[in-house]
Amino acid sequence: MEVRTIKVFTTVDNINLHTQVVDMSMTYGQQFGPTYLDGADVTKIKPHNSHEGKTFYVLPNDDTLRVEAFEYYHTTDPSFLGRYMSALNHTKKWKYPQVNGLTSIKWADNNCYLATALLTLQQIELKFNPPALQDAYYRARAGEAANFCALILAYCNKTVGELGDVRETMSYLFQHANLDSCKRVLNVVCKTCGQQQTTLKGVEAVMYMGTLSYEQFKKGVQIPCTCGKQATKYLVQQESPFVMMSAPPAQYELKHGTFTCASEYTGNYQCGHYKHITSKETLYCIDGALLTKSSEYKGPITDVFYKENSYTTTIK
């Protein structure tokens, strides 16, 4: 009895394709271990004539594949690729409408935090270190965002349907971005203890939790000093293409032309909904596939993004 075979390709990165001759009487799992086709788990399936010449994702289970996976995804987590594939199996079914010149995501599976993050990423200057993220990001900007969303979920250790947080998501993504040249110098002034300067680099240099107003941050924000008295913390120097200011959701007025974009969060910790506000020729609110415009805006804002380049204080 002759062994019926077909020729397929296996890959971990969709760049390096490895030619395989597979036995049609055995499952993919018996031949390769966990195997995925377009995100779908085909591990328990036997090869079919229609699979001839198709590319299958496999887990990096030998040295060659491990090197290829690390170079593309910059992670050695053995569960990463499987999590990416199972997320992709959902995100490829989502709709990605162009809204006001940006790629958004039609609401499904509690994905409003991903839509808000995706919209924000198209408006701030950011370059990702893992080629996987950078490639998928370019495709997302062009309207094909399924891979990018699935990668975000995998890097953030999230599953489809789980509630997510924009600030946490951005923080994970910033860790995989090139923020080497970003720098922030802060000064804390206390009447009792004097003053202390701190220099922050990388992710810490672009994120701040405690106030939404970048102007206020430049002037000074009140913080408790270690001595128990009130101290003032203010920005001395900022070198970065953008800054992200966050605070627990509270009524906040966004003035046209003073910011790049913002995240609105309605609801409580267990259950809520994100919308995205962007400042173009007027203010726009993007909620999944829905767009509304207004000249002014007041609502429960939790993150505001500002364009920056270089700032030095005039406070002496």
Rank of each mutant, 00 (worst) to 15 (best):
C227T: 01
V236G: 00
N110C: 07
K201D: 06
V203L: 09
L173S: 06
T55L: 06
L88R: 04
E204F: 03
E239M: 06
L81M: 11
Q175N: 08
N61L: 13
L291T: 14
M245L: 07
S246I: 03
A117L: 03
V67T: 13
Y274D: 04
P47Y: 02
V67H: 14
K44I: 12
I45A: 12
Q251I: 15
H48I: 14
I15S: 12
Q195S: 14
G299E: 06
C156E: 02
S104T: 14
Q195L: 13
C112W: 01
E71K: 11
F70R: 12
T19P: 14
Q196T: 11
E68L: 07
S25G: 12
L65H: 08
G272N: 01
T258N: 10
P34Y: 08
K218L: 04
A177H: 00
V243R: 02
K183D: 03
T199L: 06
E68I: 03
C112E: 03
A146L: 03
H51T: 05
K307G: 06
A136F: 07
E296I: 08
G220D: 03
K127D: 15
L121N: 01
T55E: 06
C261S: 06
K307N: 09
Q222C: 09
E71F: 05
G257W: 04
T76F: 14
F80D: 01
P249S: 01
K316P: 15
G194C: 03
S181A: 14
N14Q: 11
A205Y: 01
C227M: 00
L121F: 07
C149Q: 00
T232V: 14
K54Y: 14
T27V: 14
F128H: 02
F305R: 01
K293Y: 07
E296A: 07
V243D: 01
T211R: 00
V3K: 14
W107T: 06
E264G: 09
K229W: 07
K92S: 10
Y28Q: 05
P300F: 15
T5R: 13
N187W: 03
S86T: 08
T211D: 03
D13M: 01
S79N: 15
F148W: 01
V42T: 08
T55P: 04
N61F: 14
P131L: 05
N14W: 09
F148R: 03
G267Y: 15
T120F: 06
T169M: 06
M244N: 02
K183G: 07
L179M: 06
V189Y: 08
K54S: 12
Q216G: 06
K255Q: 11
G299Y: 02
Q230K: 12
K218Q: 04
T27W: 08
Q251V: 13
N129L: 05
C112H: 04
Q270D: 15
T35L: 10
Q20R: 11
D41T: 10
N268L: 02
C285N: 09
E52S: 13
L59S: 14
E168I: 15
L290K: 14
D180L: 06
Q270Y: 15
M24A: 14
F242V: 02
G161L: 00
I15W: 13
G272A: 00
M244R: 00
Q98S: 12
Y284M: 07
Q30G: 13
L200T: 10
V58H: 07
F242G: 00
V189K: 10
T159H: 14
E264R: 00
W94C: 05
T159R: 10
Q31W: 13
T19E: 13
G29C: 10
V243G: 04
D180W: 08
L163Q: 05
V243P: 00
I301S: 00
G202V: 05
Y138L: 14
N100S: 10
H18S: 06
Y311G: 07
K95N: 14
Y36M: 04
D41W: 05
I6S: 07
T19L: 13
A247G: 08
Y269Q: 15
M207N: 00
K95H: 14
P34S: 11
M26W: 09
V99K: 15
D63A: 12
I45Y: 14
M209E: 11
S263N: 10
L81E: 08
Y214L: 12
